[in-house]
Nucleic acid binder design. Structure first.
Lengths: 116, 116
DNA sequence: TTGACATATTCCCATATAGGAATATATAGT
DNA sequence: ACTATATATTCCTATATGGGAATATGTCAA
């Protein structure tokens, strides 16, 4: 089996850095494709193709305004990612605490040696 | 250019569902490879290959214990994902509010028509 | 209708999979 | 040394890219 399609879910879609940049930019407000081409310094076809992927997984919404297609980020589709990463929050807080404790322990020992 | 390597960063590494399952399981505590083979019902080589990817991007840590390799999730490496998704939190909260407002507006109008 | 502008799609190709099968490496026990 | 156990790596193949180039589609304006 090959790698899952970029359009299979939000996780695969946002794995591409340029698509994250697009989402960041479109989170500020709806923008036409041309703006993204300028901002990201990408060829127009590339931008359109990235937008197609994002659209397929619901990460962006579009509406037409004359010749322009106005895209915007649909944050709701990012939420599952947030929820998943959140389940590890407790863990990294705990791991950081352990690191801090060890550092303090080390400092205490060194101080003892120096003092004694 | 082709798709970025799965080992290029945490975003690409966790795009694969089985790797997320592995991280979920190893978050409970360190476990040998064999446990993952049983739990995920995957072939041992597949598990080892997924672990290799996760290790390359720092998402898991290993230590040897006799013939066993004990893996554990390194939550700290998931944090960048969490931080990125978090930047959209404000946005989806706002979007949900708008949806709620519209629903209430709609209900109000329908009530008016019914009443008047 | 014709031309200009904005965006989308198609074709091409080098590259990277994920899993299956087979094999290699490492360690413990005898 | 030899065997069993645990894990890692290699080889294979179908599949899916992402960007570049070229082209198609859609809309406005005159």
């Amino acid at each position: 089996m090959a790698r899952a399609a970029t359009t299979s879910d939000a996780f695969n879609a946002v794995a591409e850095p340029r698509r994250r940049e697009i989402l960041d930019y479109l989170a500020l407000g709806e923008r036409p494709v041309g703006d993204l081409v300028v901002k990201l310094r990408l060829e127009q076809p590339s931008v359109s193709k990235h937008l197609r992927v994002l659209r397929d997984v619901g990460l962006v919404r579009v509406r037409r305004n004359g010749r322009h297609m106005l895209y915007r980020t649909n944050a709701e589709a990012i939420r599952p990612l947030h929820e998943w990463t959140k389940t590890f929050e407790r863990l990294w807080a705990h791991q950081l605490l352990r690191i801090k404790e060890r550092a303090e322990e080390k400092a205490r020992k060194a101080d003892e040696e120096h003092g004694g």
